[in-house]
Simulated scan of single mutants.
Amino acid sequence: MTRSYTLVQLRYFCAVAELENMTAAAAALNVTQSTLSSAVAQLEQVMGTPLFTRLPRRGLRLTPAGRRLHERSLLLLEDADQLPGLVREEGPTLAGDLTVGVFGPLAPFRASLIFEEFEREHPGVNLSFLEGDQEFLRRALRDGKCELALMYDLGLGGELPRRVLRRIPPHVIVAPDHPLAATPEQPVSLRALADEPLILLDLPHSREYYLSLFKLLGAVPRIRHRASGYETVRAFVARGHGYSVLNQRLPHDLTYAGSPVVPLPVVEELPPIEVLLVRPAGTRPTLKSRAFEEICLRVYGVAPVVSID
């Protein structure tokens, strides 16, 4: 006889999977922790396998079976939410939660605009962003903490489905009193700058990309400072501590401290960074994540496609 489970149990399970903590999930669902624990235990009994690994003082982690159930549960719950509208022959009305990962240096540029567009078109969806570095987001996709992520093409490997949103070439920034700042429209040689002090954006995979640019040119940069914050790098450059190489460029050249930097194009042909929309491998996108994809394509000015999976 087929063992049964309920949609409520699946919803409770998904909340625990996303928050990795029974107490936090119970508070989010407004139920008691004992109710939640019982629902998860019953679901594990129905599935015939543990869904979580209990880690002392570190909360819960999905087992491989739990990850597979989480992926399928999101689709099943979404279909269930669409059922009343389908019965009434109405178009789909998206509802529920959608978590999207976003690479930290990308977040200030497009995340708020994408959020506004998505919220206006799909007010029933609670969209939240999970911000972190490339490695953090790669793990979040693997562990089911986000359905898709806005990332760079750095350190991903070939197993994750992705859609290219933009290709951004590297550029140099210098302080206003730097000799090269007098002619900002004139391309500069990155190879010629290698002997000057470099302020390196020191994030996992980002630093390897920037150092690889010098290696391609047969040069070794003289690193003066390493900083993990995009704006910290710009602030050090603005104060005259050195130059830097970046990709994303703000619509203005002021730093948080109010001092400007001067962006300069690079004369050498160097590989750009690709801005990607990335999904977990082997999953079928939900309607909510497809709607987010459409907004991203529109914001980045990319011709729409049926799917990125």
Rank of each mutant, 00 (worst) to 15 (best):
V102H: 04
R57I: 04
L51G: 01
G157E: 09
L62E: 03
R3H: 10
L51T: 01
R207Q: 15
L250E: 09
F13V: 05
R142H: 12
V172E: 01
P169C: 11
F136C: 07
P260C: 05
A80I: 05
G59P: 04
P304Y: 06
L19A: 08
R72V: 06
P251A: 09
S38H: 14
R163K: 15
L127K: 08
E121D: 11
A111Y: 05
L203E: 01
L60T: 00
G124Y: 10
A80K: 10
G132H: 00
V266T: 03
G66Y: 01
E135G: 11
I114G: 00
A95T: 13
V305G: 15
G144D: 02
E20R: 12
E185S: 14
V261N: 02
V245M: 10
P92M: 15
H205V: 11
R110I: 09
P161V: 02
P304Q: 05
T63D: 07
V266G: 01
M1R: 08
S112M: 10
R207F: 07
L250S: 10
S307M: 04
G104H: 10
V102D: 04
L211Y: 00
V8T: 13
E294F: 02
S206E: 13
R138F: 08
F109Y: 15
I295F: 07
M151A: 09
Y210N: 02
I114M: 15
L217K: 03
R163G: 03
A95V: 11
L277V: 05
Y5F: 14
D81E: 15
E274M: 13
P169V: 08
E116N: 10
T183S: 15
L62C: 07
E159W: 10
R222Y: 03
I295M: 09
G282Q: 15
N126K: 14
F103Y: 14
I168R: 07
R290F: 01
A26M: 04
C296Q: 07
L254M: 15
L160V: 03
R142C: 04
E131Y: 01
V46E: 12
A238Y: 07
P170T: 05
A257R: 08
S37N: 12
G158F: 11
A175P: 00
G66I: 00
P105K: 01
F115H: 11
L86G: 04
E121R: 15
V262C: 06
P50N: 08
E20M: 06
R142L: 09
E18T: 12
L51P: 03
P197N: 06
